[in-house]
Write a protein that binds this DNA or RNA. Structure first.
Lengths: 154, 154
DNA sequence: CTTGACCTTCCCATGATGGGAAGCCCTATC
DNA sequence: GATAGGGCTTCCCATCATGGGAAGGTCAAG
């Protein structure tokens, strides 16, 4: 199996398969005479394991841990559960963080007329108080165009 | 005000203030004779605006848009509301995605004994079927140590 | 005059992924 | 046999937002 076929069989892009090999997450693939990587069912199985772990939000580092536990037949299931439990806690923390943002934003959006008039509680909140940006001493427009952000996309 | 004071007053690190200037999110600060950046209240106000927008999860690109709207006195509040609404939708999409992960993980963790024995439904799920990694034809351990991931931290 | 705390610019790293160039290999078609 | 196309290789670069740190200039206090 070439890398393209292994990619199709595992759902991991060829680019990522090479990357996983480079960082040592998977063992270096065997090579044919023409220097092509060759894969068997076992390697594809490992790639699918990684793919599944990634889809559950595990980092590559956590995935490495899980992969080692998977291959360690004398593992204790508590070790696996610990990794999963820590990951759940991390996800829940991030979910709560984002839910807080959503709550605030929904409140602000609800209070915003969303019409042709300029008064906007969303901007008022972002500004901290209700004042406009350049009212005290500055020349006014402080955003001079995000050239690097908006233009350098290709 | 030097950059350190502006940083303390705004909550934005000096590193980030320089970066925001570099990418054009904020106007280049005035300089003193010794080439130090100087900031006034208006600039700090802008930095706080950015800080608040970031804390609500807006990207720098979205923040740029909001900043321009803030400074555009003839804006229509609907434009601001549109940005916020799109961001809320994005957050909710990501929250739902993570909640799906949590749901699956909690189910698996619930089914896992978490004891000294090796059988583990979490690993079984990641493996797709119930088989072990190297059972078909491979030499066994496919994770050869994530040297780049685990060792190169400094 | 030294020390320490600032400031400056410049380069590099993160995490996980994609894009793309330059070049080699194989197969199918003309 | 030549050529076209597609797949493979390595290598470099980009993302997004942020931090670390080096090398060197500047300033104020001791």
């Amino acid at each position: 199996m070439n890398i393209g076929e292994a990619s199709a069989a595992s759902g991991v892009s060829a680019k990522m398969i090479r990357y996983y090999e480079e960082i040592g997450l998977v063992r270096p693939a065997a090579r044919t005479g023409n220097n092509y990587r060759v894969y068997g069912e076992a390697e594809v199985h490992v790639l699918r394991f990684i793919k599944r772990a990634r889809s559950l939000g595990f980092s590559l580092e956590e995935t490495e841990t899980l992969l080692k536990l998977w291959q360690d037949k004398s593992r204790e299931s508590s070790a696996v559960k610990d990794v999963a439990t820590a990951h759940i806690a991390d996800l829940e923390r991030r979910i709560a963080e984002m839910q807080g943002m959503v709550k605030t934003l929904k409140h602000l959006a609800h209070c915003c007329g969303g019409n042709h008039r300029p008064d906007c509680p969303i901007l008022d909140d972002l500004a901290g108080d209700g004042s406009a940006p350049g009212d005290s001493s500055a020349p006014g427009d402080s955003a001079a165009g995000l050239s690097r952000i908006s233009a350098d996309r290709h």
